[in-house]
Design a protein around this nucleic acid. Structure first.
Length: 284
DNA sequence: AAGAGAGGCAACCGCAACGAT
DNA sequence: CATCGTTGCGGTTGCCTCTCT
């Protein structure tokens, strides 16, 4: 049917966002919300296309975003969810408060995937690399997703006796823990300059990683979400779910694996979360 | 100290899904 | 029901920073 470009190509700025652009966008969105991304740049006085504005807001400027590395628990949850959902980053991100699909996707490609390979795990199938990948494709199991972080942190299950692949972390070997214990702090391990202020996300103006953009964080709304993860003791690295396959998990049921959570029961515990599942429309 | 290479991250592109008309 | 417009998503790219030589 011939798609129209999301915006006029002429006169539309591309590339890194400047501090001024960020301020305009944040100021506009916080004041007016966004009825339609297509008109946001016009009304905000930006020479950007609406798509770019939405992306910038979703991935960087949203006040409820957490910054910094993913915590140990977050990484585990990402791995668990990826084993079930595959590259459905938006669905995975919906279970990690304050994280974006883009952030999780990047973190997966740059960190987690390599670590899994080092551990002898196929990052695609979540099975041992030496095993044939038959029946390894992640299955759509949306009704049986692991509980999100707050519940999951409460109790980690024991690995099944049949084991599947059980990776023993050799104490003397390379640390296979996804996050070093010293990296788990109550405050995100942000760079020590202005970005550190960004970690607190409280009305600060900070430089972006590239140094070309800055963020004006208009609120402290991230603090609640941050507490959902931070401050949690660095739990030891249990055999993740993917190590013994999802079949066993499904057989056992989430109630068994995560007592007290009521399983998933088709209820998203994040429904009540501020910005619930990153529903931007609900935010405004 | 300088250059090269690798890694990490922000942003873009194109397609699909969904809702409105 | 078909078409169109908008939004969302996933893959990919390019730039910047860091590390190594």
């Amino acid at each position: 049917m011939g798609r129209q470009p999301c915006c006029d190509k002429v006169g539309v700025k591309k590339g890194p966002w400047t501090a001024e652009e960020d301020q305009k966008l944040v100021g506009f969105l916080l004041t007016h919300g966004h009825c339609c991304w297509r008109v946001v740049p016009k009304l905000a006085g930006l020479l950007r296309c609406g798509k770019s504005c939405r992306l910038r807001w979703t991935n960087y400027l949203r006040p409820d975003l957490k910054r910094g590395l993913l915590s140990d628990d977050e990484e585990r949850l990402v791995i668990d969810l990826h084993a079930q959902l595959g590259n459905r980053w938006s669905k995975i991100a919906a279970r990690l408060p304050g994280r974006t699909d883009n952030e999780i996707k990047n973190h997966w490609n740059t960190h987690i995937r390599k670590k899994l390979v080092r551990m002898g795990i196929d990052p695609v199938t979540h099975l041992p690399l030496q095993e044939p990948p038959a029946a390894a494709a992640p299955q759509e199991q949306e009704d049986h997703l692991p509980p999100p972080l707050p519940q999951q942190q409460q109790q980690r299950h024991q690995p099944p006796s049949d084991g599947g692949l059980v990776l023993q972390e050799d104490a003397g070997e390379e640390d296979l823990s996804l996050i070093q214990p010293h990296e788990i702090t109550t405050a995100p391990p942000a760079p020590p300059t202005a970005a550190a202020a960004a970690a607190s996300n409280c009305g600060s103006v900070s430089s972006a990683s590239g140094g070309s953009a800055s963020v004006v964080s208009p609120s402290c709304s991230s603090s609640a979400s941050a507490s959902a993860v931070s401050g949690v003791e660095a739990t030891e690295w249990p055999e993740p779910l993917y190590l013994f396959g999802m079949d066993g998990i499904m057989d056992a049921g989430w109630d068994d694996l995560f007592p007290g959570t009521g399983g998933m029961g088709g209820v998203d515990p994040f429904d009540g979360y501020p910005g619930g599942g990153f529903d931007q429309d609900g935010w405004m």
